[in-house]
């Protein structure tokens, strides 16, 4: 039985880990290499590294930092932010990354999904989607949650899958930073509609939220940042709590 994954996400800005509350007001959360190795030891199932400034500032991101982290980690390592070409994917893979995550660039150029999937395989491609509920519909946003697109979440998610995405990472902008729980209703719709694994993001505040995202949201993995960075939730005890609730986890 494949286990449910707990994935700490490190948002990187200027070589430091930060976490935005509703994508604004960044707070410094520590040295990324230290955090990465700590999470690996504490039982994190994967690690995601997002350069949150890349799309906005067209900045060529952080490859030396990625290399240093990949060297130390013994768990799967995903990198996202500012990836707009297969050449960039090749460079990241060469720096020891296992999977890449694309977001805005996929919306701007959906063909990029197919290109990456066909060249490097779906197993190394996560498409990340930020969405917000407005007028009863979930709308996809890009550029760090600033620009609303023409896509509804479900339609876009299906297109991502058809084009070869290996996993879908859905961040609810309505839940992100609130610590009030994940967008379980929409997650369950995605999980039942798509055949690729769903990674849930946005809203983690308590261990019960993680239990709910697996049982109600039917997610395959849950991603969170600040609750882990600030040690509000300790990964080992979170996984014990989930195991007690009969959720399969790696202990």
């Amino acid at each position: 039985m494949i286990t449910k994954r707990i994935i700490p996400c490190l948002d990187i800005l200027g070589g430091r880990t930060v976490k935005g509350v509703n994508f604004i007001d960044l707070i410094d959360a520590g040295d990324p290499i230290e955090l990465a190795t700590l999470y690996s030891k504490k039982g994190a199932d994967e690690l995601v590294f997002l350069d949150i400034s890349a799309t906005e500032q067209q900045r060529d991101a952080f490859e030396p930092l990625v290399y240093d982290v990949a060297k130390k980690l013994s768990i799967p390592f995903t990198v996202g932010g500012g990836i707009r070409s297969t050449e960039k994917v090749a460079r990241l893979l060469h720096n020891g990354v296992d999977k890449v995550s694309i977001n805005s660039s996929a919306v701007n150029d959906p063909e990029l999904i197919s290109k990456i999937a066909n060249t490097y395989g779906s197993q190394c491609l996560i498409v990340a989607v930020d969405a917000k509920q407005e007028e009863g519909e979930w709308w996809v946003y890009t550029t760090g949650g600033k620009i609303r697109t023409r896509y509804t979440l479900l339609a876009w998610a299906i297109e991502c899958q058809e084009r070869g995405a290996g996993e879908l990472l859905f961040t609810s902008m309505d839940h992100d930073g609130t610590k009030n729980g994940f967008a379980n209703d929409m997650l369950a719709v995605l999980a039942e509609t798509l055949s690729i694994p769903i990674i849930a993001s946005g809203g983690a505040g308590t261990p019960t939220h993680f239990k709910d995202v697996f049982l109600k949201g039917k997610a395959d993995a849950a991603l969170a940042a600040s609750v882990f960075h600030f040690s509000e939730i300790e990964i080992t005890s979170l996984k014990r709590f989930l195991a007690d609730a009969q959720i399969p986890v790696r202990l």
């Binding site: 039985m1 494949i2 286990t3 199932d45 779906s122 996993e167 055949s195 690729i196 694994p197 395959d220």
Partner: peptide, 11 residues
Amino acid sequence: VPKIPCVGWNK
């Protein structure tokens, strides 16, 4: 199977 690809930790 519920999901393809099979992604994650297994015993």
